[in-house]
Amino acid sequence: MSQDDPHAHNDAVDLPTPTAWPIITAFGLTLVFFGLVTNLFVSLIGSLCALVGAIGWFTDVFPHPKHETVPYVPVDERVKEICREGREVTHLNPGEEGHREHVVFGAVHPYSAGVMGGLAGAVVMAIVACAWGLLAQGSIWLPINLLAAVGDPGLANASMEVMKQFSFVGLIVAVIVHLTTSVLVGLLYTVLLPMLPAKREWIWGGIVTPIIWSALIWSTIRFISPTLAEHVNWMAFVASQIVFGLVCGFIVYRSTNVATQQTWSVSRRLGVEAQRPNKKS
């Protein structure tokens, strides 16, 4: 090791020499400040003190920082041998090899599938919702504006006539909210579906989740958006949610499984290689 560590000798090690210059400098500086609230004379003494400290400090590190050589402590005071027997490590579930794991639940769907599923679900869901708007309410813009009203104060207080008209802000807000949520839910499907009881993924993704989600919204809608609460048609709402769930779940379910990257190091996952060569086991 010694060649890597220029400060270590066979039986001693170089350490920086203890010095009082830092405390003198710090004390001087504090006196400078203390003088501002008492008497400028104190500041004067303080600045002299700080100057002396700074000069002394300078001589300490110039041209090379001062060191003193400290001997190692006696052998019996040194660190004890680390106990190597160690303790056994419990194995994973019977039948599984080893005792270490990065937990993976079933198949791993690629995240791209989640994004795609979310987007496809978003489109289908929008079609169902707009169809409801057009057929039942006579306006394709109503469902869009209703969604936007959750976040847009202008639409939240608008009358029914205004809600049925085209609104540029409403469209933008609705599209952003709709796409963000859909993609997030799509991603959630890729990670959560494999954790649920196998073979029934479509029930979970297509029916159960949308119904739970709808129930959550139904119970809190008065607070989330009074406007939406007033106008929403729950049949159409649940229908569009289920359509989303089915489409998104289907796309995720059909995707090819990929190897997980989770055993990779941070640097490798980020695509930058740090100092050590890759040693994937």
């Binding site: 405390i23 710090a26 300490d60």
Partner: peptide, 17 residues
């Protein structure tokens, strides 16, 4: 290491200030 001591003493005196 010296700056470390300096940092500590600055804090210490500022407390008393």
């Amino acid at each position: 290491p010296r700056m470390n001591a300096f940092g500590f003493w600055m804090f210490f005196f500022s407390g008393f200030l």
